[in-house]
């Protein structure tokens, strides 16, 4: 029971962190990052190979690069760094010239191809079998299977959540966040005001990549395994569903969506009786995710907790007053 609850806690935390990052990219800035899960995976793989001992140990049953066996905070920091660094070339290719749906398909294709390459290139990150026996952080000093350790891990996860939430809120409320929203609504107008949309998008894309990398590190440190089958491209769509349901552009919405869709939805359906041929229930889950996205975009595109419109105390009445007094306007 402890193990179940703590696992649920860590998954919830990781989903919340991921949804916050995706909300910054997709909700606030309008970047359709269909390869989000790749950045999470990059962080997880980085943290794993930096924490694992050289691959000749353990009887050499898995093959991977590095195997640096570095102490705790370094793999997590490196994971965040790698998530950010990987975002730079991807962003430079995708975010500069392309229309928004081209950006989306480019990222989708990247997500499929990255998974394909990692699956087939066995010596790099152990191919389709993936990495296992990843050491938990500080497992050399504490018993990683004791309830105290598990709960402490959950606590650390939520501290990271709070940190990411704080940073996200600061970004959304800053003048920079306002510019991002303006760019999402009308890119040409923002360009005309002297802002460079490519720089704006690149910055938030890298920030999102850093957070995604961190979320991967947190997850892999707890579940101790990581394989290509855990980061197939549909996983990104679950996070999109969460952000859309929660409310695009609103960090509270991302929080709510993360709790509702990946955590609530997956957990609720876990206890459904398995009926029909094997694989029917998971397949229906995916259908339900699709219906959830389509239903919300049709009936409530702003989500459960809509983004609050910006208020400017002085400016709004002045504009309104002038419009009503204008003689020509009827």
């Amino acid at each position: 029971m402890t193990y179940y609850l703590t696992t649920l806690g860590v998954y919830a935390g990781v989903d919340i962190i991921a949804c916050l990052a995706l909300n910054l990219q997709f909700g606030v800035s309008g970047i359709v990052n269909f390869s989000f899960i790749v950045f999470q995976a990059a962080g997880a793989y980085t943290a794993a190979v930096l924490a694992l001992p050289p691959d000749s140990q353990n009887g050499g049953f898995q093959h991977y690069v590095f195997g640096a066996q570095l102490p705790f905070p370094i793999p997590w920091i490196a994971a965040a760094v790698v998530g950010g660094v990987l975002s730079v070339p991807v962003g430079l290719v995708v975010l500069r010239h392309l229309r928004v749906d081209y950006q989306a398909i480019a990222m989708l294709v990247l997500s499929v191809i990255a998974n394909l390459v990692i699956t087939n290139a066995r010596p790099f990150l152990n191919g389709a079998a993936g990495l296992s026996l990843v050491p938990q952080p500080l497992s050399d000093r504490f018993n990683a299977y004791s309830p105290t350790y598990l709960w402490a891990y959950v606590a650390v996860t939520f501290v990271c959540c709070a940190l990411v939430f704080f940073v996200s809120q600061r970004i959304v409320k800053s003048p920079y966040g306002r510019t991002l929203r303006a760019m999402r609504e009308h890119e040409l107008a923002v360009t005309a005001l002297g802002k460079n949309p490519v720089v704006l998008k690149m910055t938030i894309f890298v920030v999102g990549g850093v957070i995604a990398g961190l979320s991967g590190a947190i997850l892999v440190g707890f579940i101790t395994i990581w394989a290509p089958s855990t980061w197939l491209y549909p996983e990104t769509l679950i996070l999109f569903a969460a952000v859309i349901v929660g409310g695009r552009g609103n960090n509270w919405g991302a929080l709510f969506g993360a709790a509702l869709v990946p955590v609530g939805f997956e957990e609720a359906t876990r206890y459904l009786p398995q009926f029909g041929p094997p694989g029917l229930v998971p397949a229906l889950q995916w259908v339900a995710i699709g219906l959830l996205i389509i239903g919300f975009l049709w009936f409530r595109p702003k989500g459960v907790l809509p983004e609050k419109p910006g208020r400017f105390a002085a400016a709004t009445p002045v504009v309104g007053a002038r419009l009503t007094k204008e003689p020509g306007v009827s």
Binding site: G30, V32, F34, R99, V100, D101, A104, I105, L108, P234, L237, F240, I244, A283, L284, W286, V287, I289, G290, L291, I293, I294, L297, P301
Partner: peptide, 19 residues
């Protein structure tokens, strides 16, 4: 619905058909 929404809808449709 903007392009950004349409592309998400079509990906959702793709997953639904497959499943």
């Amino acid at each position: 619905t903007a392009l950004i929404g349409m592309v998400i809808i079509s990906l959702a449709a793709s997953l639904m058909i497959a499943n």
